[in-house]
Amino acid sequence: MSTLPHLLLALFILPPLAHAVDRTINPALNAQLKLDATNLDRHATLSNDEAWRFDFPSQQKYTFSPGSVVNANAATFPALTGIGMTIAMLNLGPCAMLTPHAHPRATNVVVAITGNTTSWMVGENGVGTVRVDLVAGILTIFPMGSLHAMQNNGCENAQLVSALNSEDTGTINYLNSLYQLPHDMIRAAFGDAGLDVDELGKGIPAVGTGSVLGSDECLKRCGLNR
């Protein structure tokens, strides 16, 4: 059996999938905001000051253990309906990572607030990997539909802010999506008919709070266990 397909599949499987699925908290309010004809109508609908306030730390998914992606978007913060933006708080505990994913409906701009995080991005076939070290004040761009991932390299928490130009960005977690395809096709795509796809796929978790523990090298350096 060829070693390369196993290494490639392991690259995607060892770090489980990241991004949380947002549920719409007030569909009736979203619908009304879409019907409002004027800005005055919109303000009448959003007449409570609290409707204009989003508290990231109070959100259920907000954690650094191992981390989280907390989105302020049309689903979680109805005031963003029709605005065309999502703002996300990215919390990465020590050695935590966001695993390979893409946003099919938005370009993603990320700026580091604290910590030492590295991002990787692949734009399309024929384009090499773009690596950016994200320390405080450094910004990078993930164009719409690009494959990207990131890891906190440090033994302390890291925090980043992510801005996307859609209030409904969509997220495709690549391993969850891959394992919805027939497994004989997955084997064929890796060029290895003997690859035990079923066994390798057992470790892929459901979509969670948005972050998982990263590389063994970082965990060992920081004295952490998986």
Rank of each mutant, 00 (worst) to 15 (best):
24 T>R: 09
115 G>Q: 03
55 D>V: 00
92 L>C: 10
96 A>L: 07
37 A>G: 13
222 C>T: 10
177 S>R: 13
115 G>V: 12
20 A>N: 09
151 Q>M: 11
15 P>V: 15
13 I>V: 15
142 F>Q: 14
154 G>M: 03
183 H>C: 05
113 I>D: 04
57 P>V: 00
140 T>E: 03
135 V>I: 00
158 A>G: 05
207 V>T: 08
130 V>C: 13
186 I>E: 02
60 Q>W: 05
204 I>Y: 02
43 H>A: 11
117 T>M: 10
185 M>L: 13
41 D>I: 09
9 L>M: 07
110 V>S: 09
108 N>F: 08
22 D>I: 07
149 A>C: 13
222 C>Q: 03
204 I>A: 07
194 G>R: 13
143 P>N: 03
185 M>D: 04
150 M>K: 14
134 L>R: 00
153 N>H: 01
121 M>E: 15
79 A>V: 12
172 I>R: 04
121 M>R: 14
138 I>K: 06
68 S>N: 02
129 T>W: 00
180 Q>V: 15
163 A>P: 00
98 L>G: 12
85 M>W: 14
129 T>E: 12
137 G>F: 00
88 A>F: 10
89 M>S: 12
178 L>N: 09
4 L>E: 14
130 V>Q: 12
103 H>I: 14
112 A>S: 03
53 R>Y: 03
54 F>C: 01
110 V>G: 05
91 N>Y: 00
206 A>G: 15
209 T>A: 05
40 L>K: 15
98 L>N: 11
103 H>C: 12
224 L>K: 04
202 K>R: 03
46 L>Q: 02
165 N>P: 05
80 L>P: 14
44 A>Q: 02
65 S>L: 02
210 G>I: 03
96 A>T: 10
10 A>K: 06
182 P>G: 02
13 I>P: 00
200 L>C: 05
141 I>N: 05
203 G>C: 04
225 N>R: 02
55 D>M: 02
31 A>Y: 06
215 S>V: 12
186 I>Y: 03
165 N>A: 12
93 G>Q: 07
60 Q>S: 15
73 N>T: 04
213 L>R: 10
210 G>N: 00
122 V>F: 08
2 S>V: 02
142 F>A: 14
21 V>H: 00
65 S>R: 04
64 F>H: 04
34 K>Q: 01
96 A>V: 08
1 M>R: 12
92 L>H: 01
59 Q>V: 08
31 A>R: 02
183 H>E: 01
81 T>G: 07
201 G>H: 06
136 A>F: 03
25 I>A: 09
126 G>W: 03
48 N>D: 10
132 V>S: 07
40 L>C: 05
188 A>C: 08
142 F>S: 10
218 C>E: 08
119 S>C: 10
52 W>S: 04
34 K>V: 13
197 V>A: 04
222 C>K: 07
32 Q>W: 08
172 I>M: 12
5 P>Q: 12
28 A>H: 07
23 R>C: 14
77 F>P: 14
214 G>F: 12
200 L>G: 05
104 P>E: 10
107 T>W: 06
11 L>F: 13
109 V>M: 10
144 M>S: 05
39 N>A: 05
203 G>K: 02
127 V>M: 13
73 N>P: 00
122 V>N: 11
69 V>H: 01
148 H>R: 14
85 M>K: 15
99 T>P: 14
47 S>A: 08
184 D>R: 10
155 C>Q: 06
102 A>V: 13
130 V>S: 14
